[in-house]
Design a protein around this nucleic acid. Structure first.
Lengths: 245, 245
DNA sequence: GCCTTGATCTGGTAGGGCCAGATTGGTAGG
DNA sequence: CCTACCAATCTGGCCCTACCAGATCAAGGC
């Protein structure tokens, strides 16, 4: 969903992060040498170096010349893209970081949705309406609507006509993709989500800013709580202490 | 200030983006082949590939296997990191994107500063106070406080105790680094900025949420206007139509 | 003018090699 | 026993060549 690198490079990025997770490496820990990783993953050193260049640019790793590859303190140093990547790989965040993400998302989406009320065009409404239709179909069919959920929220953000806001909200949404996937396994939650989105659409169409702000607040909070409950029920698919750094 | 890649790779990233800017490439345009860039920049194809891996991960370029390297539609596809990188290189954004950035920054900082009022610790206040001191010294000495400005804002964001919010605001601040540099060349603006920051500190210390929200709003708006005026006066150091995509 | 076809170009990947600084383990000296 | 020093080794930074197979494109045949 995310990076569109060559399969090899992105594979190596994944493998490297999986290595980090599996070996429970923490901030400042040293990774195996490039040559070692190369042999370990069955790829050339060139490929490893490309992957490391990406991880470096995301401030996940730091390569000290002639010394080694070290892990950074990701939640602090890394950008949100790094957190999205980690979330994709099933690395768990500590509880506080999860709460922070929810809070940040509410802040950004409240305002984006509010601006969408003011600025939405007919084309925006049509787009949202279309998404809502497929959303309903998928919900009825018992299909997973995680991607469509993200798409809907980003479409609303786009209706705010603020491209920066869209790019700000995107990682905040993608950080919770994994949890969202589990979420939609429940028929009850699928229905609730559909209802919520219909309410969003109605409020935006009616330009009811106060309502939409309240809806965002409630929706994100309850959805987050539901996901949290699911995580605890399933027992978290990621190692608890795998949270990097 | 940003990426901490090996000098070679980050150089090649810069050179590549400079090539894009210089040749006024737009979305969908094709870049020279890896071998060509390699010769052009005087580095190995390996180095070019590392740089391209980074650019790919930022969704600035897209490498189509056995076909070529193409430019993406950055403001849409790329993350905020990509925009920061472009801003660093002096690529101009279109006016709307600039307005969007200001709006997004106000949204995030208003809430971050508000939360800072609620949650700031004594340590946070001490940190801010210290920054304010050096800020005053620099202002008096006529030095450029662009970096310290960013640091102050991020320290306030950190006082919100929300690490995600910090990471969200960071690129929004860094996007305007270049303009900020010019801004602090004026003694009058240095003084105004110092006054603003002192007001921020006082409001946060007093936990005056309403005031701090107002201050953020005014500060960002007027500062942005001043920077805008400077840009127009200087005639923009970036080619007007260099805005990529 | 259209289609086929073959030379050419392109990115993807492998693998080897050299450099110079960082590391480290062992050794000599106190 | 501890310290100081030194050389073998390891590591990241770069460079270079080679091969593959699909994409591209121009020349040639219809």
């Amino acid at each position: 969903m995310n990076t569109t690198l060559t399969s090899e490079t992105s594979d190596t990025v994944r493998k490297t992060l999986e290595y980090v997770r599996h070996h429970r490496l923490a901030k400042g820990d040293r990774l195996p040498s490039e040559r070692n990783l190369s042999g370990r993953f069955g790829v050339t050193r060139s490929s490893v170096r490309e992957a490391l260049a990406v991880l470096d640019s995301m401030r996940i790793t730091e390569r000290k010349a002639k010394s080694g590859i070290f892990l950074r303190n990701m939640p602090e140093d890394g950008g949100l893209d790094a957190l999205v990547l980690q979330a994709d790989l099933g690395m768990a965040f500590d509880a506080q970081l999860t709460r922070d993400a929810i809070e940040a998302r509410i802040i950004c989406e409240e305002q984006a949705f509010r601006l969408a009320c003011q600025r939405r065009t007919e084309a925006d409404l049509a787009k949202l309406s279309g998404l809502l239709d497929t959303y309903a179909v998928l919900a009825a069919a018992g299909r997973n609507m995680a991607d469509e959920d993200v798409e809907f929220h980003l479409a609303v953000a786009a209706a705010s006509q603020n491209r920066i806001l869209v790019r700000t909200i995107t990682p905040l949404m993608l950080m919770s993709t994994r949890g969202r996937r589990r979420y939609f396994a429940s028929a009850e939650l699928r229905q609730r989500s559909l209802d919520d989105h219909r309410a969003f659409f109605a409020a935006i169409e009616a330009r009811d800013e106060a309502l939409v702000v309240k809806l965002v607040h409630d929706h994100v909070h309850t959805a987050a709580a539901d996901i949290q409950a699911l995580n605890e029920a399933v027992g978290q698919d990621a190692e608890p202490s795998a949270t990097p750094t």
